[in-house]
Simulated assay, not measured.
Amino acid sequence: MIDVILKKGKEKAVLQRHPWVFSGAIEKVKGKPANGDVVQLLNAQGEFMAYGFYNDQSRVTLRLLEWNKDVQVDEAWFRQKVATAVKSRDSILANGTNTCRLIFSESDYLPGLIVDKYAGHLAVQVLTSGIQNVMPVIIDELKKLLNPESISDKSDNASRAHEGLTEAENKVLAGSPPPELVEVLENDVVYGINITEGQKSGFYCDQRDNRHVLAMHAKDKKVLDCFCYTGGFTLNSLKEGAASVTSVDSSALAIETLSENIRLNKLDGTKHTAIKSDVNVQLRKFRDEGEKFDVIVLDPPKYAPSRSALTRASRAYKDLNRLGMLLLNEGGLLATYSCSGAMDMETFKQVIAWAALDAGKQVQFIYQFHQPEDHPVRASFPEGEYLKGLLCRVF
């Protein structure tokens, strides 16, 4: 096995079992490992520290896997990690839910692998060269454990590019192609999931708990669901008795799927209005028309993909939330989210405070939203905590 030597003084994070080693922390590489190979990391004195995936095309040159020198990182090792992750989701899938994230990358000790379950179908994202090398083993283990009807590759090409990987083909890796709409059940709400053409892997199961919490505040309320996608917050709000829900998204496919989801759940379509529009444009239109709502959901895409983008993203979050606050009735509720890992909760709270100041509003934080248990945060890898949200009462 090829040795990678760490620079003197760079041991702390490795000893604390953080899984990333950046290129600047490496003194030298003894040999020429191929990208995706498992190598062993040594400290400056030549002592063993960890095994990890190597990739000289990535800023994260090593993604560490195992800190015990006597444990072989072989086929059995990867099968065991897959099996452990899948087993840990049993409680989520016990009642009223048949969709969740089965494997969450570094947080499940498989850096660069995401696996989502949609009823009898699986969607995978392969985001590192190391995981790409062992995909035959992972696919085989998933088939043995779950016997899925299909396994589809839905890899995010922007993330793959950072690893020097070619674009994914988004093809069926096992089984038969999934139907155009796969029906799944989450908290007793039915969703039609378009695995082939939908965003990311097809559905955002990371908002499962948050959709349920928000819906408890929607009864008899006038709700605005922004960046609604296929209607997670919309469907839960209608089910819990919202007086009306207006859903806004720029994707025609999302709006079409949302309408189908309302039909699947036998909800009152007369209480729902779908608008295909850019959210920021539509919010300004509502403002100019004097429109008001009791509850507003703002669940935008990732504005800050990295720390270098945080300043620009903060301005975007502030402007979006300022507009939302202006559309609320007195004492109304704003459920606002950020899926940017670079933005921590305290920074997000500060951004919301700035938005309130600009809007001439007072805000109370009454609840903090988080990602659910199938998106665990590894103690040694706080970067896994990306989803955050606030339920705000606005005066």
Rank of each mutant, 00 (worst) to 15 (best):
L6C: 03
K7V: 12
K7C: 12
K10Q: 15
K12A: 12
V14K: 14
V14S: 14
W20M: 06
A25L: 07
E27L: 12
K28F: 02
V29W: 00
K30L: 09
G31Q: 04
K32N: 13
V38T: 05
V38S: 02
V39K: 09
L41Y: 01
N43P: 04
Q45H: 10
Y54Q: 13
N55W: 03
K81P: 01
A83T: 11
A85L: 14
V86R: 05
S91G: 11
T99V: 13
C100Y: 00
L102D: 03
L110F: 02
P111A: 13
I114A: 06
A123M: 07
V137P: 04
I139Q: 04
E141V: 09
E141A: 15
L142Q: 05
I151C: 08
S152Q: 11
D153Q: 10
A158R: 13
S159F: 08
H162D: 12
E163G: 11
L165M: 15
A168T: 14
K171M: 07
S176D: 12
E180W: 02
E186S: 09
D188K: 09
Y191C: 10
K200E: 05
G202P: 02
C205I: 08
D206C: 11
Q207H: 14
Q207I: 12
R211T: 06
R211W: 01
L214R: 11
A215T: 15
H217L: 01
A218S: 14
V223A: 06
F227K: 06
T230L: 11
F233G: 07
F233R: 08
F233L: 06
T234Y: 01
E240R: 15
E240Q: 14
G241M: 10
I255D: 04
N261L: 13
I262W: 00
R263F: 03
N265F: 00
H272L: 08
V281C: 03
V281I: 08
V281A: 13
L283T: 08
L283S: 03
R284W: 00
G290Q: 06
G290A: 09
K292Y: 00
D294F: 00
I296L: 02
L298C: 07
A304W: 02
S306V: 13
R312D: 05
L323F: 03
M325E: 06
L334G: 05
T336D: 02
S340D: 06
S340V: 10
G341T: 12
I352T: 13
G360V: 09
Q368D: 05
E373L: 09
A379D: 03
G389W: 01
